[in-house]
Design a protein around this nucleic acid. Structure first.
Lengths: 354, 354
DNA sequence: CTGAAAGCGCTTACAG
DNA sequence: CTGAAAGCGCTTACAG
């Protein structure tokens, strides 16, 4: 421990012992008085202890409390990239709900890689948090995936709770979005507007989220009799630039009759719009565009971008709530609705043609 | 402590004692063997201990370690709103640098309000982190501001380190951006392109960051002989919608000769562009637009938005580095350069006029 | 180089 | 209702 440069003594951290002494009671009583849940405390003593604590600026030492009780009132969030607005929105929901539940939230970046995630889980275990929440897509080998599951299982054996937020790839309690339903609703809405020949910009890497989106799109399209022409589905990285390049490809190879480009994320859709414009094609007027997620930015591109709005913050909050529930024998799954938001990039076809 | 439902015994958390027993050494020796910095350990024993730890899946209990050593290898970040890309970028820099330095990063939201921030500082003190990093603008009364400074001072007296990232409002070590210089450079670049009558969209609330930006703009403009017409400066909330409404106002009252609108943030500038478009004015071609910060989105609006790029992630990283330095008698200040990025919203005036 | 012992700040049966 | 004591898992002088 460092010493106080001023006095040469120890730094003036106020401990429970100080509060107890100031209030003229034992440490045990002070501890109980400070615990709102504790029953057997005379109200007079509680008042005196609380007053002493306030006056001295006492803050309980969470670490000491945790070494006594075995766990920290903390939820650890593993997030692939905080700069992604999709993740930021979920994380925001986590922070809010954690605050309401008296937990602090800790974060670590995992950079989308499972191997990184394993490393982070291991590190986080040291903090003995009540729960770990995993969010953001991950990629890695099957071996890595198994190792991650093992590492998480180990943590649950230590009484830790694991919750997955936003996707559905791991066998733990999950708060998730109905992407499939949202994607189907999007297709139905586009069909209603007169679109008939969609092209798809799909995520390069396979994931449950990507599959849900695609299944929703394809099922609804089939049901409604829409056709996918040859070459109308392109794979690309899930970024703005990925969408840009995919759209370039679509423009060059123009699948027959293509009247709308549907991307798996807004970022990809926004990139696709830029690519169209640079190729002299006016997004919306000539070819429709739709994204997914409805994160910030959809309202600021020109024309505004049609998308599917997800209750991302609510997913984050629900993840915390799941983490606070007693572990159950069966896996829990909470699913949130999505909502199609039609904007400028998908005008009514009928009005454009005549 | 809960019990293991399977065995009825305690949950199988592996402790140092288990590792020591497995390796056939004392807890003290095991502890030293596990500490890479510890010198006096025979390499044979170290190897055996490390092997036992690995085999048992041992994770040191950070809380226990912290109650012994007095602090947690953790840096607490107080961020106003994680969904703001500006903050997200700084936070990303913090996470990365913290990881490199063997610290974990903890976050709490403060919702822009000083009173909230005080509450959060108090809560965070419980965790005994090595440092607290404050980022994001804050608003509140002078009384609140003083209370916040007191709360932070209390924390530094407990050997905590306080660092401010991205602004310069509080008397602690600071990692900051040269907004003033960036704003001046922007004006110089616009002058070079032939712009002469700027209008300003300024933040509604006063802050050092806002002042720096404004000083940089006004000083350079004056030096270069540019004029500010009556009514050419409008105050607005620092959001997309704030920029939208400010631009509406400017369009309605059109200050004489206005040829470029300069907003204090990209979000405001992007809102202003939408307002222009909705008023039938083509941003860039008719009236130039420039933002500040160069966060994601500047490349995706039409035309692309001229802005000033800030080394936000580096500011976050620098904040962690400052936090790791020994406290000094004088306040430290690290300042990062900014860079003007000219894009589609500020074409060469000369080419447009003829 | 190694181990026994004390101590970090807290909580919680246990006994009044 | 209250207090003395044990104990959480770790680290670190101290003494070999």
């Amino acid at each position: 421990m460092r010493t106080d440069p001023a006095t040469g003594g120890p730094p003036p951290t106020v401990t429970l012992r100080d509060v107890a002494a100031a209030a003229g009671v034992s440490k045990a009583s002070a501890s109980r008085a400070l615990d709102p849940a504790s029953q057997y405390v005379s109200s007079g003593m509680r008042a005196r202890v609380l007053e002493s604590a306030r006056r001295l600026g006492y803050r309980p030492n969470t670490s000491a409390r945790a070494t006594t009780t075995g766990a920290t009132a903390m939820v650890a969030v593993l997030v692939s990239d905080i700069r992604d607005p999709y993740n930021a929105e979920i994380v925001h929901g986590v922070i809010e709900q954690a605050g309401r539940s008296g937990l602090v939230a800790t974060f670590a970046g995992t950079d989308h890689a499972i191997d990184d995630e394993i490393r982070v889980v291991r590190m986080m275990r040291s903090l003995r948090p009540h729960a770990m929440i995993l969010t953001g897509a991950r990629s890695g080998s099957t071996v890595s995936r198994t190792a991650l599951e093992e590492e998480l299982a180990r943590y649950t054996q230590e009484d830790g709770r694991v919750v997955i937020a936003g996707d559905d790839e791991l066998p733990f309690d999950t708060a998730i979005l109905s992407r499939r339903r949202g994607a189907s609703d999007l297709i139905a809405a586009l069909f209603e507007l007169g679109y008939e020949r969609p092209a798809l910009i799909r995520p390069e890497h396979d994931s449950v989220a990507a599959r849900e989106w695609e299944d929703g799109i394809v099922d609804a399209a089939r049901r409604l009799g829409m056709r996918f022409e040859y070459g109308s589905a392109v794979r690309a990285p899930m970024t703005r630039d990925g969408g840009y390049r995919a759209a370039e490809h679509l423009i060059e190879h123009r699948p027959r009759g293509m009247d709308v480009v549907i991307a798996a994320t807004d970022a990809m859709a926004i990139g696709a719009m830029s690519a169209m414009r640079n190729a002299g094609i006016s997004p919306g007027t000539e070819i429709g565009v739709a994204g997914f997620d409805d994160v910030q930015g959809t309202e600021d591109v020109t024309p505004t971008l049609t998308s599917v709005s997800l209750a991302l913050a609510r997913v984050g909050a629900a993840a915390v709530e799941l983490a606070l529930m007693e572990p159950a024998a069966v896996r829990r799954r909470v699913e949130f609705e999505s909502r199609v938001v039609l904007r400028g990039t998908t005008p009514d076809r009928a009005r454009i043609i005549r």
